[in-house]
């Protein structure tokens, strides 16, 4: 079973001075599946994300990423841009971080930077315009066009990203992350601020990414309609520790989870549950 884990978080610890944001967290994300990380505000979800994507260096523990070919990468030893470049982990942000002054198409072209840099011979071949560079550029535009079509933004390809409506910006950010052709896609609250129809479309998009690209997805989400509908596995955090794990159905019925969300004592929560049934 453990052979099929793309991401294994092992006794992860993250301290900021005296504050322990993540304490001894262990979980695994299965290959080709959607894993959700949920928990109340301040539970440490985004900190876990920042550790996985290299924005923080963990105080302790290990994060292992296993690629399809069996290659294992210790993410806690890589930092910064190398996680996206070598380990093929892409992410989106809780507050959208597009390049607002660049068009939607340009945003997707920037995402293919590393592949295009190789194709342009570190700029020198591209400067004199060799044919192999031209064809690589056309292929990159085609990939961008394909993703713009997938997220329904093809007609807005030449508009500035900052001019797009909020929901479109969310989808464009996911398309931009997918243009890096990641093995693991980390989404930080992709449904935040979306209405019911938009989050429905988001569900379909994520499910189609899992089905067509086979990309494993790790997401943080507060919108339970998204979490319950599309996740294969749910990890629940509170105060920096894992309090529950399992299928969406099992987690929903876990008294510890209910207690964490409703702020009640465990016994009280169980009493509430029992009186309800």
């Amino acid at each position: 079973m453990s052979d099929n884990h793309i991401l294994t978080v092992d006794h992860l610890m993250m301290r900021f001075g005296g504050i322990v944001a993540v304490n001894d967290l262990s979980f695994a994300a299965e290959r080709g599946k959607i894993t959700a990380l949920i928990g109340p505000n301040g539970a440490g979800k985004t900190t876990v994300f920042n550790c996985i994507t290299g924005f923080y260096r963990p105080s302790g523990g290990a994060i292992r990423l296993t690629h399809d070919d069996g290659r294992t990468i210790q993410l806690e030893r890589l930092n910064d841009f190398r996680i996206a470049k070598r380990a093929k982990v892409a992410r989106t942000f809780q507050n959208i971080r597009l390049f607002p002054g660049m068009t939607a198409l340009e945003n997707l072209m920037v995402a293919q930077h590393n592949a295009l840099m190789r194709a342009s011979g570190l700029t020198f071949l591209g400067l004199i315009g060799v044919p192999s560079w031209r064809s690589a550029e056309r292929a990159a535009i085609d990939l961008a066009r394909a993703w713009l079509t997938r997220v329904g933004l093809l007609d807005r390809a030449d508009d500035a990203a900052g001019n797009l409506p909020y929901g479109d910006q969310r989808r464009l950010e996911i398309a931009r992350a997918m243009c890096t052709e990641p093995a693991l896609l980390c989404l930080d609250e992709p449904a935040a601020g979306l209405n019911a129809r938009e989050s429905g479309a988001l569900n379909e998009l994520l499910l189609s990414i899992r089905a067509d690209q086979g990309t494993s997805i790790l997401l943080i989400e507060h919108d339970m309609s998204v979490v319950m509908e599309i996740s294969d596995h749910v990890v629940v955090m509170d105060y920096g520790v894992k309090i529950a794990e399992g299928t969406p159905q099992a987690v929903r019925d876990d008294p510890k989870v209910i207690a964490a969300y409703l702020g009640a004592d465990e016994e009280e929560a169980i009493a509430v549950m029992e009186s309800a049934t």
């Binding site: 910064d80 841009f81 470049k85 597009l98 920037v110 590393n114 342009s120």
Partner: peptide, 23 residues
């Protein structure tokens, strides 16, 4: 070329650049 787009992307948002694997 990709380098020029990376320069402009850097001006727009450095954190997003790092998340996309740009050195």
């Amino acid at each position: 070329l990709p380098i020029g787009r990376a320069w402009e992307a850097l001006r727009e948002d450095e954190v997003a650049c790092r998340a996309l694997g740009i050195n």
